[in-house]
Computed example of a mutant assay.
Amino acid sequence: MDSFREIIAIGADRVKNNVRSGLTSMTPEKWIRLIIVVGAYALLRPYIIKLGAKQQMKALEHEHDQDAAAAAAAEISPNQLRGQIDIPENSDDEDALPGDKTETTAAVTATEWGKKARRRQRDVIKKLLDAEEERLRLEHEDEEDKDIEEFLVKE
C-alpha cells in the first residue's frame, strides 16, 4: 500500500514540475503556435465530425446492402433449386429394367430422383389435387344450396 502511494506522489510531482517548466519556457512564438493549433481544432472539429459521420453512414449502407442481398439470396426455396419436375402418372418402376430410363423416370432439370422420392412426390401431388377437388365440390354445393334457398318460402 505504501508503494502505491509513493508511485502516485511521484507521478503528481512529475506532472506539476513538467507543466510548470513547460509554461515558463514558452516563448511568444510557441504561444501563438499553440493558440493557432487549438483554434483550428475548435473551428474544424464539427466539420471533421460530419465528415466522419458521412463516411460511417456510407459504410453502414454498404453493409446493409450486402446483408439485404444475402437475405434475398437466402430466400430461395430448395424446391426452386431442384428445378421443375414432371412426374408421369405411371412411373412406379416395378417392371422397369435397371438400365432403361426412357419413359419410367421423371424429367428433372437439376437432380435425378430415386423411385421412393418419385412415389412420395406423386402422392403429395395427388393429395393436393384431391384437396382442391374437395374444396371446389364443397363450394359448388354451397352455391346450389343458395340457389335452392331462393325458392323456399319462409312462413
Rank of each mutant, 00 (worst) to 15 (best):
E6Y: 02
K126P: 05
A69F: 01
A131Y: 05
A71M: 00
D95P: 03
D145R: 03
I49E: 07
A107L: 08
L60Y: 14
N79P: 01
D86F: 14
M1Q: 05
L60P: 01
A69C: 00
D67P: 02
P46W: 02
Q56L: 06
W31D: 04
A40W: 06
E141G: 10
E112L: 05
D130T: 06
A40M: 11
Y47A: 12
D93M: 14
D2C: 02
Q66T: 03
E132N: 07
E141R: 08
D86K: 11
S25Q: 06
Q55E: 07
A110K: 13
E134V: 00
A107K: 15
M57D: 14
I7Q: 11
R135E: 03
E63F: 11
A72G: 05
K116T: 13
N17L: 12
E63L: 05
A73R: 04
P28L: 09
E132P: 00
V124H: 08
E143P: 00
P98N: 11
K101C: 11
A107R: 08
A69P: 00
R119F: 14
V38M: 12
D2R: 07
A59L: 12
M57K: 11
A110I: 07
K115D: 08
D65Y: 10
A42S: 14
A131D: 09
P46A: 08
W31G: 00
E112C: 02
P98Y: 03
P88R: 05
K126E: 15
A131M: 13
H62L: 13
H62D: 10
E143I: 04
E63Y: 06
A72M: 07
F151G: 06
E132M: 02
L97G: 06
G83A: 04
R20M: 05
K115Q: 09
I7P: 06
V153S: 12
D142E: 13
T109G: 01
I85Y: 11
P78C: 04
E155Q: 14
I36K: 04
E103F: 14
E63D: 13
R33Q: 09
R122Q: 14
Y47R: 07
D65A: 07
L152R: 14
E61P: 05
I36H: 03
S3W: 12
T105M: 06
D2F: 02
R14V: 15
F4N: 10
S77E: 04
D123E: 08
I49Q: 07
D65M: 09
K50R: 15
R20Y: 12
H140W: 08
D2M: 03
L51W: 15
T111H: 09
V124C: 03
K115Y: 06
E144L: 05
D95Q: 09
P28T: 01
Q84K: 15
D65V: 04
Q121S: 04
V108Q: 13
